[in-house]
Each structure stands twice: as structure tokens, then as C-alpha cells.
Design a protein around this nucleic acid. Structure first.
Length: 603
RNA sequence: GGACCCAUAGCUUAACUGGAUAGAGCAUCUGACUACGGAUCAGAAGGUUGGGGGUUCGACUCCCUCUGGGUCCA
């Protein structure tokens, strides 16, 4: 397909370098960046690196390459040189050809291999995200995790990969027992239906209650003269909780059935939260089902001398050669630690899914060390897939008041937060009085779309690696660089298209429309969609997609402001602009979909 | 004690992985067509990219150091 001028430019540059200076350069090594707005041109070649080899000044080198290109390429309209920057202006026909090709074949808009000779090799990937504990409800930190995981999975799919979304539920351990014990002692048989509470919140309530009672006991002992450390150990609740964990591990039927009952409540609650968040999973793993495999693997590792046992019977791995520390894998009493179950889970996944290339863990950056260790362990065990373990590490969400602590109740609850932003969207929409003929169900759906659009965009537009600040007291913005701004632009385009569709005498666009500055700018951005998806996939960054969607919306609004789209007197221009609007809407909708954000037809 | 991460305008943040005059939004001030949707658009003001040194034709980006914040490992 001749539409794709970049290849031709690169080819031209390669032969210019060869013929002018005898420099052999690979075509895919040539980097053409977008020309900055202040300068004339579409693509820029930085020639500083070549000027050394050419023996000429940067300016002269750029001029020579430019002239050579101009003489040998039909896609180049003109060029100019500023210092060592060679700015290339592409012929308008390139953009028109692109427009016509997409107009005829809509799927070209999103084809990941559209601008490239070497298609991305499809891979088989697994993305683990969410990973909640069953002792408390989801909070703000989980929201970032869920949105990131879901979006990254969608982006990778858009790159042509096969992707499995999985969740790992931390459903066992001492913290789970705390809620169970507190409920048993003080719950009086309370259930989600008897209390009207969401199951995860109910269980979370008893987790907090346990902690409160436990602290009271410890304090009481301390006032009697015991040291804090001893008090923490000998508090009656601590004794009981240890006993409960032992019972659980030995499979005591009463403990197990309480555990199943309460976890069931939590799962019902999570299901609602996940639904509201709009995330889902292809498969759910439970630590209670994988930790034994982890233990077994650790024992096997001792036999094969990958790990070693200390006198106190605890098992360790020595990673000092890899620049890490020694790390416990099994405690002296034989109980497993965090990483034990991760070992089992990873092994299970690669056993279950033959051909899995990469396992991507979406987990906060406080676990950076943990995942370095995990990978080093599998390298030590010589698993061929060890290098396929990838930790997608993201920054914490900070509150103005400092860190969230669930035991102290200083958390931003996920359900509350979603409710708040949806209400915020409702108030804003009502204030604008745009509800016209919405019935109440439609209106509710719209509030949800807008509220969730606001919070999702707000979180995803920030580079995942960076920690971000979230102030729940200040309501989420709806104007400017926000989800609703993009949603608004989409709804507006749909509205224009509707008007255009009513025209009875509208011809099919046959060409000949000469591009205005704004139209060309919009086309350029639309053109870059596959490039953007590729970059987002390589960096595991929804932020790239979010910023792109904003650029598209902004660019469209600019165009919209300066041009009349539907004009009875200009049928060809109208046809062109309607088609361009349709492409814009499609690109916005698709980008937002990658972020897990819906776009409304009206708002 | 050891290791890792972060710092950009009053606030929230971009910067194509070393390129041109560091872009946006919010907040502030000024302006826009009797409208294809004003949740829009145009403009003003706001920066020694935490401080100092180094490498380079060129540094927010790489190296060293200091300061401040955060995290992890015994």
C-alpha cells in the first residue's frame, strides 16, 4: 500500500546516506520524529549523528540529504533546515490518500501493522491484577491497580497479543482469621442480608473490630506492667488467632465452613465492585489452592540444593550472588511466607498454559524487591520461562493526609468513591439542564458513564510508574483534560453526524477537497493511532492512550470551531468533513475503550 | 546498617526514551459567532525542571554529590 509515506521517506534517507557519504544505515534504525509545531514540516530527521561521518557541518549535511530526497522521492513536497534538524514536509496527497484509504476500509484505522513492514509478533501473555485480600473491602489503591491491569490487558490485545486476565485472591492466612474470630465472638450471627451491608464491608467491619479489641487487651496488659512486646504475644486474642490458623491449616471442618461462608460474602461484595468498575477476569486463582504446591517446590529445591535449611529448620535461598540478600522461604515452624505461595502460583500457571510467554504482575512498587527475588528464584531453579516474569510496578496513590491505613480507618473506600463521583456527575449534568428526553434509567446509566469516565481518566492519565496524589475532598474536574471532556467531544460528533445523516442529497465523497490546516492536523493525529498503541503496549502505559485521546478531542474541537461541517451549499466538503468526523469519533471511542471508559451517544 | 524509587508553574501533570523556544489542564485575568451541542474555543500571566558539579554539538532525561520525601530487606 503506497499510502504509508514514512517507509518511503526512510528508504530515501537510507539511499541518500549511502550515495552521499557511503554510510550504511538500517532502514528501521532511522528515527523520524514529528516536527514541532513552530516549524514547517511533518517529520524531522536529526542529522547531528550523521554529520560526524559525513565530515560536513550539520546544516550542510541536512541540506544535502534534503536535496537528495527531494530529487528522488515523490512524497516529499519540500524541506527546510534549522541547525541540524531536517524538516520534511510531506505532500498533501499523502494525507488525502490516507483519508481515502481509511474511508474505503475502516479497519485500517486500527490496524496495528498499518505503518510497519515488520509486524509485531503475537505473543501469549497473562496479566495478573487486582489481587485482593478477603478480609476487607477494596480501596483507592486497588482502584488504580484494577484500572491499570484491565487497561494494559486491553492495550496488549490491541497490539495483537493473546491475553489472559487473571486475579489472585489472597484468601487464607492470619489476617483472614482475624475477621472470622471477631465475627464468631461478637457477630451475633450477623449476615449481609440481616445487616443490609455489602459482604466485603461486613467482613471488613469485623477485621477492624478485632484490631480494636486486640489493642485494648495489649494496653491492659501493659498497664499491668508487661512490656509491649510480651503483651502483644500473650494477649488472649493472639493466642486464639494462632489456634484458629492451626485449625484452618489442619482442615478443621467447623473453621473451614466459617471461612467458606465469610469468604462467600466477600466474593459477592467484590463482584459488585468489579462490575461497577467495569473490570473482569478470565480466571481466578486462590492462594488456598496454590500455597501447598509452593511448599512442595521449596522442599524439592532443598533436595536439589537450590535452597538450604538452617539448624532451626527454616528454609532459605541465598541470592547474594545476584546482588540480593538471603531470603526465607519457609519459617522454622514449617508455615509458608508470602513468596512461598507466589512460587507455587507461578509454576502452576506455566504448567497450565503451555506456550505462555510472559506473566505480568500488576503490583505496587513497594513490592519491587519481592519480585526481583521471585524472578531470581526461578532463574536459580532454571525454569526456562523465568525471564518472562515481569513486574508492572506502579506508584502508590497518596492522599493529602498521608498514607492510607486500613486498620486505622484512614482509607478511601472504593465503593464510596465511585458513588461520590457518580453523584458528582449527576449534579453537574442536572445543573446544565441537558437531560431533555432521558428517562430515569438512561439518566442513571449516563451518570455512571460520566462519573466513572472522570475517575478512570484521572487515574490512568498519569504515568503508572509515578506515585500520584488524589484529593477526594476536591471533587473530580469535568472540564479541561478530563474524561468527560473527551466524552463530550464524542457526543458532540455523534450529534453532528446525526444531523448530517438527515441530508438526503449528500453525495459520496469522491475526492478533491483541499485540506485546511486544522483538517490536516486532525488527520495526522488519527494517522498516528497504531504507533501510539504500539508505544503504549511497549511501555505498559495507559497514560499514552489517555494523552492521545485528549489530543484527538482537542484537535477536533479546534477544527469544529473553525469550520462549518454541514453546509447544504457544499456537498463535497460536507461529505469529507462528515467522514473525517466519523473517523475521529471511531478513534476516540476505541482509545477510550482501551482505557475501559465508555463514551455516550448523548450527554 | 544495606538496597531501591521519586522531585517539573500556586495545584494536578506532559515531553516521542539524549534533540529545536519544557507542552497541557485547574485556579486567576481578558475575550468569542442569535449555536452543526458553551462540559467549547482564542488570548494573557505563571518555570534557574529541588541545589551544586560533570559528560555532550545538545541534558527534565545519563554520571557524581548534597537536600527533601517515600519504599523495601535482616
Amino acid at each position: 500500500m503506497s499510502v504509508w509515506f514514512e517507509k518511503e521517506l526512510k528508504r530515501g534517507i537510507v539511499s541518500a546516506l549511502q550515495e552521499l557519504y557511503g554510510i550504511s544505515e538500517q532502514e528501521d534504525k532511522i528515527i523520524l520524529q514529528e516536527t514541532k509545531k513552530e516549524f514547517e514540516g511533518d517529520r524531522t530527521l536529526v542529522v547531528f549523528p550523521y554529520s560526524k561521518q559525513s565530515g560536513k557541518s550539520p546544516e550542510e549535511t541536512a541540506n544535502q540529504i534534503g536535496s537528495h530526497l527531494k530529487a528522488n522521492s515523490s512524497v516529499l513536497a519540500s524541506f527546510n533546515v534549522v541547525k541540524g534538524f531536517l524538516n520534511l514536509l510531506v505532500a498533501d496527497s499523502c494525507w488525502s490518500d490516507f483519508f481515502n484509504a481509511v474511508n474505503a476500509e475502516h479497519a485500517l484505522l486500527f490496524d496495528p501493522n498499518r505503518n510497519s513492514d515488520s509486524p509485531v509478533k503475537p505473543r501469549f501473555l497473562m496479566v495478573e491484577y487486582s489481587s485482593p485480600n478477603t478480609n476487607k473491602p477494596l480501596h483507592l489503591g486497588h482502584i488504580r491497580n484494577n484500572l491499570l491491569g484491565y487497561s494494559v490487558a486491553e492495550i496488549l490485545k490491541a497490539n495483537g497479543h493473546q491475553v489472559l486476565k487473571v486475579n489472585l485472591v489472597n484468601d487464607r492466612g492470619i489476617h483472614i482469621c482475624k475477621s472470622m474470630l471477631a465475627w464468631q465472638k461478637w457477630g451475633n450471627g450477623e449476615t449481609p442480608s440481616s445487616s443490609g451491608m455489602k459482604g466485603d464491608h461486613l467482613v471488613g467491619k469485623y477485621y477492624v473490630l478485632y484490631d480494636k479489641k486486640y489493642k485494648e487487651q495489649v494496653e491492659h496488659l501493659v498497664t499491668k506492667g508487661m512490656s509491649k512486646e510480651d503483651a502483644e504475644k500473650s494477649a488472649p486474642l493472639n493466642q486464639e488467632i494462632q489456634e484458629m490458623l492451626r485449625k484452618w491449616e489442619s482442615g478443621d471442618s467447623e473453621t473451614r465452613s466459617l471461612w467458606e461462608k465469610m469468604n462467600g460474602w466477600v466474593y459477592d461484595g467484590f463482584a459488585i465492585t468489579y462490575k461497577n468498575l467495569g473490570v473482569d477476569f478470565d480466571k481466578i486463582y486462590y492462594e488456598s489452592q496454590t500455597y501447598l504446591l509452593g511448599k512442595k517446590m521449596v522442599e524439592d529445591g532443598v533436595k536439589s540444593n537450590s535452597f538450604f535449611r538452617k539448624e532451626d529448620q527454616s528454609v532459605w535461598v541465598d541470592l547474594t550472588a545476584e546482588g540480593l540478600d538471603q531470603k526465607v522461604l519457609l519459617r522454622a515452624d514449617g508455615t509458608s511466607v508470602y513468596i512461598t505461595q507466589d512460587i507455587g502460583t507461578a509454576q502452576l500457571r506455566f504448567d497450565e498454559h503451555k506456550g505462555l510467554d510472559q506473566l505480568i504482575y500488576v503490583v505496587g512498587n513497594e513490592q519491587d524487591y519481592h519480585f526481583k527475588v521471585l524472578r531470581a528464584i526461578f532463574q536459580k531453579l532454571q525454569r526456562p520461562w523465568a525471564d518472562g516474569l515481569y513486574h508492572l510496578s506502579y506508584g502508590m496513590v497518596d492522599l493529602p493526609s498521608g498514607k492510607m491505613k486500613s486498620r486505622e480507618g484512614t482509607v478511601v473506600d472504593a465503593d464510596d468513591l465511585m458513588k461520590d463521583v457518580v453523584e458528582e456527575a449527576e449534579m453537574a449534568t442536572k445543573a446544565m439542564g441537558k437531560l431533555d428526553d432521558f428517562d430515569s434509567a438512561e439518566a442513571r446509566e449516563l451518570y455512571h458513564t460520566l462519573g466513572m469516565g472522570a475517575i478512570k481518566y484521572f487515574i490512568l492519565k498519569v504515568d503508572p510508574k509515578k506515585r500520584m496524589l488524589f484529593n477526594p475532598a476536591e471533587s473530580i474536574d469535568l472540564n479541561g483534560n478530563t474524561g468527560p471532556f473527551i466524552q463530550y467531544t464524542y457526543a458532540r460528533i455523534r450529534s453532528v453526524l446525526k444531523k448530517g445523516n438527515k441530508l438526503t442529497n449528500l453525495p459520496h465523497y469522491t475526492g478533491g477537497h483541499s485540506l485546511s490546516k486544522e483538517e490536516k492536523q486532525l488527520l495526522k493525529i488519527i494517522y498516528s493511532y497504531p504507533q501510539m498503541v504500539l508505544e503504549a503496549g511497549q511501555n505498559f502505559s495507559p497514560a499514552v492512550v489517555a494523552n492521545f485521546a485528549y489530543d484527538v478531542a482537542k484537535s477536533y474541537n479546534h477544527f469544529y470551531h473553525d469550520h462549518v461541517i454541514v453546509d447544504d451549499a457544499e456537498p463535497q466538503t460536507t461529505a469529507f468533513r462528515l467522514a473525517l468526523s466519523g473517523m475521529t469519533a471511531a478513534v476516540i471511542s476505541q482509545s477510550m475503550k482501551l482505557l475501559g471508559i465508555q463514551v455516550p451517544e448523548r450527554m
